[in-house]
Design a protein around this nucleic acid. Structure first.
Lengths: 202, 202
DNA sequence: TCTATTTATTGATTCAGGTCAATGGATTCT
DNA sequence: AGAATCCATTGACCTGAATCAATAAATAGA
């Protein structure tokens, strides 16, 4: 039988060089494996996010829904961690939805489990800090992209950097991630393929 | 004589309830007070940011300069902490400038000083985590605003939330923070005052 | 104080994206 | 397989922001 903790263990060991097998065994007690089906909504506005999740397999999306407008803040794929970190950290209601886009298996640690780790497992504070710092860096790249690049540039970039994600996700969600309407993304695509058809062959 | 460590001490004690006077004395050894003049540039693209700074007084701006376009990522005012956190954390060259907008006094801790604290002063890892988490929350609010709101809405919001900042900063920098050109902000302002002139008196 | 420079406003034009609406193509469900 | 739903594309029109340019206002320097 497949070990559901294999991947998450590798993930934490990579961030946490001093982690011993003994401490891992302690930490693993706090983890809960959960399966979800495509279409499940695992967090709604008004709810407080209570978990940080590692994705064994699957695909997850976080988004705002503000007067009918759907704005994707992030996609999360297998082998990475996610949370509604703002809500989780501040213990305040989320403003976002989090949906399961493909059947997924998550390995959750809840707020109390994490506090237990911080208080009892050596160097876990450091891991918490490193995770927060990594999330900060990712977010600051996204913010820079929103400020500096046009939607077309952002689309070309995601095509190049995450082609698999673009394939797995409906186009209107990609549009919503780029900050434009589905119609606009459709026209951006048309513009790009028109240009590449006209481009002189080098 | 004014104690240059008074404010920064208050700041750290508020984040760090377990901080003893003895530990503070140790930590204070690592702090360096620096004065800057309006117009000084304290970090340029290509340089690695080596400090986290607390602002005793003054005003600081971080911005990108990409093919002539000036894009403000943040303003920082007295009694808060700042850094080019991405560069500082990852020890990689900054992509941004950081300028002094008003004569300022900063209380710096450098990278090694912070590592010393993490390794030697109890609970400092936790403070590092809390600071990273706070910065994450601030940044995620900014990102949401860029995704969800129009430039006009963002301008009205900054007017309401940080009226003093708007007064202290040239308008073209506010425009650059909102993600529009100076001309566009000028028109947004014209539009708003036209509307409020037309608005029926309630 | 007067001058030089920087900053803010306004006009004309262009263009990308939003909105509304219609159509055709894909998926999904039973 | 067939129906129903969802999704992507396209067209027409509109609006807001970018750009280029000129001018006015404010600020800083000598």
């Amino acid at each position: 039988m497949r070990d559901k903790y294999e991947k998450v263990k590798t993930f934490y060991f990579s961030l946490w060089p001093s982690l011993t097998d003994e401490n891992w065994a302690d930490f693993e007690q706090k983890l809960i494996v959960r399966q979800y089906k495509k279409g499940d909504c695992i967090l709604k506005p008004g709810e407080v996010c209570n978990t940080v999740s590692f994705i064994n397999y699957g695909l997850v999306r976080s988004y705002y829904l503000v007067d009918g407008r759907d704005v994707t803040t992030n996609f999360f794929v297998e082998d990475s961690c996610f949370s509604n970190y703002q809500s989780f950290l501040s213990r305040t209601p989320s403003l976002m939805y989090t949906d399961i886009l493909e059947d997924s298996e998550l390995v959750d640690i809840d707020y109390n489990g994490l506090q237990y780790a911080y208080d009892n497992i050596p160097d876990s504070e450091r891991v918490g800090r490193l995770v927060a710092e990594q999330l900060y860096i990712i977010l600051s790249n996204r913010t820079a992209s929103l400020l500096l690049e046009t939607p077309e540039q952002r689309y070309l970039k995601i095509l190049q950097e995450k082609p698999d994600l673009v394939r797995r996700v409906p186009q209107y969600m990609v549009a919503s991630y780029l900050g434009v309407t589905p119609e606009a993304l459709s026209r951006i695509r048309a513009r790009i393929s028109k240009r590449s058809a006209e481009a002189p062959l080098i």
